[in-house]
Design a binder for these strands. Structure first.
Length: 283
DNA sequence: AACATTTGCAACCGCGCTTGA
DNA sequence: TTCAAGCGCGGTTGCAAATGT
């Protein structure tokens, strides 16, 4: 038995919103607010729409102070830098860009920025090219046992991945990132010896390409970009580490702190050192 | 000009989380 | 403490427009 539907699917309109529907919703919310109940809202407004659809329309399109134009270079920089750090946590990224919605940013990343920055990397076809941050695969019978802990395989991944699927890759989750941040200047990130990254170890931090940041990449010429990515490619090939983890490990502390500290202020139990433990996660 | 393919974006879906009774 | 309802998020899909052949 599945989850109960949030609305009567038979009697709700789907698809693009008409100007009349927009006007009704906008006018109602401006006068009365949402009432804290999106599910009940369509009936009050007189719309044959699902409450979730109304909420999405309001948040992504109708609410005041939304920016609809092109993204600025500064916004691009913020998106790229945050993506490297926290992955596809679009709502967190959107919180740093006033007037932008998570959906906007997600679409912009998937359609423009990804290509701009990573176009030379292998990719799959259009709708299978979503970025996916995955935790290491666990053995369902034993949560402590990790299967293929550092690989994203092609065969069992319906969404595909942007990294060469046969190469090892590990992308930290936002929870893991939170454990790393903020960290005092010069505090090393440790990769514990008990769980190597395909045989690599903490010494890699000291030998990873420096400096590296996507902020730098954005303002670089194509030749400079080739050089930057070339450094990563050779490092990547020699170590078997993913580009993401190399980026993470080689990012200057001050950049991480300036970008991420505001997001992580609420997190009081912050560990200043991260290490990749036996379960493949940062501990 | 016609057709195929790609791109960009709005919208939907489903699931985990939060809240309140 | 439990559980159902609602919310919010990230992933995915649909489709029109743009571009290529």
């Amino acid at each position: 038995m599945g989850r109960a539907p949030c609305c009567d699917k038979e009697n709700v309109k789907k698809g693009p919103w008409s100007p009349e529907e927009d006007a009704k919703l906008k006018s109602y919310i401006e006068q009365n607010g949402t009432g804290g109940n999106w599910i009940a809202l369509p009936q009050k407004v007189g719309l044959k729409r699902c409450g979730k659809s109304c909420r999405l329309r309001w948040l992504n399109y109708l609410r005041p102070n939304l920016k609809h134009g092109a993204f600025s270079e500064e916004e691009e920089n913020i998106i790229c830098s945050l993506y490297i750090r926290i992955g596809s946590r679009w709502s967190l990224i959107a919180a740093q860009l006033p007037g932008r919605t998570d959906n906007d940013i997600k679409n912009y990343w998937n359609t423009k920025l990804k290509k701009k920055l990573l176009g030379k990397f292998p990719r799959k076809d259009h709708h299978q090219n979503q970025y996916t941050c995955r935790a290491p695969k666990q053995d369902p019978k034993n949560p402590h046992k990790i299967l293929n802990s550092l690989e994203i395989s092609n065969g069992d991944s319906p969404a595909g991945c942007w990294i060469e699927p046969t190469l090892p890759a590990y992308i930290p989750s936002s929870t893991e990132i939170k454990r790393l941040l903020p960290k005092p200047e010069g505090t090393p990130l440790l990769i514990s010896p008990d769980h190597s990254l395909n045989g690599t170890n903490s010494h890699l931090l000291a030998t990873s390409p420096q400096p590296s940041s996507f902020t730098n990449c954005l303002s670089s010429s194509s030749a400079e970009l080739d050089d930057i990515f070339g450094q990563f490619d050779s490092f990547y090939e020699s170590t078997g580490m993913s580009r993401e983890i190399i980026e993470l490990l080689s990012m200057p502390d001050q950049v991480i702190n300036s970008l991420m500290y505001p997001l992580m202020e609420a997190s009081t139990a912050v560990s200043y050192q991260g290490s990749i433990g036996v379960n493949g996660g940062l501990v």
